[in-house]
Each structure stands twice: as C-alpha cells, then as structure tokens.
Amino acid sequence: MSVSGLCQICESRPAQERCDNCGTLACEQHYDSEKGLCADCAAQVEPGSDPNSDDVDIHRF
C-alpha cells in the first residue's frame, strides 16, 4: 500500500502504512503489521481477540 505524509502518531517519521481499523497513517514504529493496526488501535485490542470479528458473545445460563 502506498501512503504519503507523516505518521499521525509521532508526527516526525514518514508514514508507511494505514491502519485497517481507523485509517491513521503510521510509521513502521507505530504500526503493528501482524494485526494491521496503528499503535493506538493495537493497544485497545485485547490479547487473543480479533479486531475484525463481528462475533457476539453468547452467554447461556
């Protein structure tokens, strides 16, 4: 993916990626390529969860 501009997180390095979740332009340091998320979105994701999943938890009693 080709992006241009500065990282919207650190505002000092060239952006190389765009977050799949929020669209933020991010440099290599502020982008999690495994998750496809910027550092801010990756920090909000619980370990082991899929941010692209629309699954609903169903509780049965």
Rank of each mutant, 00 (worst) to 15 (best):
1 M>T: 12
2 S>M: 05
3 V>M: 05
3 V>L: 09
4 S>M: 03
4 S>Y: 08
4 S>Q: 10
4 S>R: 10
5 G>D: 10
5 G>T: 06
6 L>S: 11
6 L>I: 03
8 Q>T: 02
8 Q>A: 09
10 C>L: 12
11 E>S: 11
11 E>A: 14
11 E>Q: 15
12 S>L: 08
12 S>M: 12
12 S>W: 13
13 R>V: 01
14 P>Y: 12
15 A>M: 06
15 A>S: 11
16 Q>T: 10
16 Q>H: 13
16 Q>C: 10
18 R>M: 09
18 R>W: 10
18 R>K: 13
19 C>H: 05
21 N>P: 06
21 N>I: 02
22 C>F: 06
24 T>A: 13
24 T>K: 07
24 T>C: 13
25 L>A: 14
26 A>I: 00
26 A>V: 01
28 E>S: 14
29 Q>S: 14
31 Y>K: 08
33 S>P: 04
34 E>M: 10
34 E>C: 13
35 K>E: 12
37 L>S: 02
37 L>W: 03
37 L>F: 03
39 A>G: 04
40 D>F: 07
40 D>W: 09
41 C>L: 07
41 C>K: 01
42 A>E: 06
43 A>V: 09
44 Q>I: 02
44 Q>G: 12
45 V>H: 02
45 V>R: 04
46 E>L: 13
46 E>K: 12
47 P>M: 03
49 S>Y: 00
49 S>M: 00
50 D>P: 05
50 D>F: 04
50 D>Y: 03
52 N>K: 12
53 S>Y: 00
53 S>T: 00
55 D>E: 15
55 D>H: 03
56 V>Q: 04
56 V>M: 02
57 D>I: 00
57 D>A: 01
57 D>L: 00
57 D>H: 00
58 I>W: 10
59 H>S: 15
61 F>W: 15
61 F>Y: 14
61 F>P: 12
